[in-house]
């Protein structure tokens, strides 16, 4: 009987460890440390206005990071997500300014294009079984070329602008690029979109069949398929979700600045992945959290603005980025070891 007793005790320790070791854990601890660091040195940083200031980059990055987290949990990457935010913005502004299309209709058209590109990424990846890293690297380069080439063809410059005077602009701006006043402070509406996206993604992951399929498709696609999970369909849907997020962010940016540079979004794809990884996503798929990715984005927002508040050179941001990534991956590896260790 003593053997059984020892076993029970072991199980209790295991349960405690499990509640502690969640995918978000590293991100939460990291966010607290980063906040404490900047807040201690900069009163502006911890003021409501300061918080509104750094929550804004966290929000636009966070919308993407959450979508990329879902995709990574499903076992795939999307390197074209960053430029796609540019593509969707460019389509919106070009249609509205050069062709006089109503802003709302232009947004619908750019959404359709984005979803088309997303599903194409997904179909190519699932049909060819090529690594999504390569497939989306291809679409990344192609979109980058199209963004610049087409913009130059149409406008003769490398940007499109003048969205402000387009029909339907004002109503769209209020919804996608407006602000909400709480007390004396103006918060960007993007923060609401980001919170909604995080809540929705978390709900899908934890409380729907699709969520179960996402974990399974990323954890072991063959095993998932063998028990009847539509893994390919799940993955295509995830690529389309990422494209949808890129459309949302692209539209928010276009409506906010009323102009779009043709080279916008390049290099962002890695930031999304880094935020998702800091939030606990494994590069190998099958594990991670949407909340974690959202917190990963908060860390970025805080560092991005905090470094400016402290009057440091912005180059330090890159150093910070690398350090966070390394720490997060190390923490993740521990989690995975624990989860996969086989008790004999």
């Amino acid at each position: 009987m003593t053997a059984v007793k020892a076993d029970e005790r072991l199980a209790d320790v295991g349960r405690l460890r499990r509640t502690l070791i969640r995918p978000e854990l590293g991100a939460v601890v990291g966010a607290i440390i980063v906040f404490a660091f900047f807040a201690a040195q900069s009163p502006v940083f911890r003021s409501p206005a300061g918080i509104a200031n750094w929550l804004d980059p966290a929000a636009t990055l966070g919308i993407m990071a959450v979508a990329i987290a879902l995709l990574m949990i499903g076992g795939e990457f999307d390197l074209s997500a960053g430029v796609l935010t540019g593509t969707t913005g460019l389509i919106l502004v070009t249609l509205a300014t050069e062709y006089g299309v109503n802003v709302w209709l232009a947004m619908l058209i750019s959404l359709a294009v984005a979803l088309g590109i997303g599903s194409l990424n997904g179909i190519v990846v699932t049909r060819t079984k090529l690594p999504s890293f390569i497939v989306t690297l291809g679409s990344f380069l192609m979109l980058q070329g199209i963004n610049l080439g087409v913009t130059k063809l149409i406008t003769g410059t490398v940007q499109v602008s003048g969205l402000r005077t387009a029909p339907g602009f004002e109503s769209a701006r209020v919804i996608f690029a407006g602000t909400i006043q709480i007390g004396q402070v103006h918060f960007r509406v993007a923060i609401l979109w980001w919170l909604t996206a995080t809540a929705l993604a978390t709900w899908v992951l934890m409380r729907t069949r699709a969520g179960n399929w996402i974990f399974a498709a990323g954890g072991n696609e063959q095993a998932a398929r063998a028990v009847g999970v539509p893994a390919a369909r799940t993955k295509i849907a995830l690529f389309m979700t990422t494209a949808f997020a890129a459309w949302l962010v692209g539209s928010i940016m276009a409506l906010r600045y009323t102009s779009v540079q043709a080279n916008i979004g390049i290099g962002q794809e890695f930031i999304y992945i880094i935020a998702a990884v800091i939030g606990g996503c494994l590069l190998t798929g099958g594990y991670g959290s949407a909340i974690g990715a959202a917190i990963g984005a908060v860390i970025f927002g805080m560092a991005d603005k905090g470094i400016v508040f402290l009057g440091w050179d912005a180059d330090w941001f890159k150093f910070f980025l690398g350090a966070m990534l390394l720490l997060a991956t190390l923490a993740n590896r521990l989690v995975r070891r624990y989860a996969e260790e086989v008790k004999r």
Binding site: R207, R209, F215, A216, G219
Partner: peptide
């Protein structure tokens, strides 16, 4: 089975009991 998923998630994988709106 899928090692990183919990026992109950694995147990119903591909045949999840449903509530309304496709909720698991």
């Amino acid at each position: 089975m899928i090692p990183l998923m919990s026992v109950w998630r694995n147990f119903f994988l591909g045949s999840e009991p449903r509530k309304s709106f496709g909720r698991f």
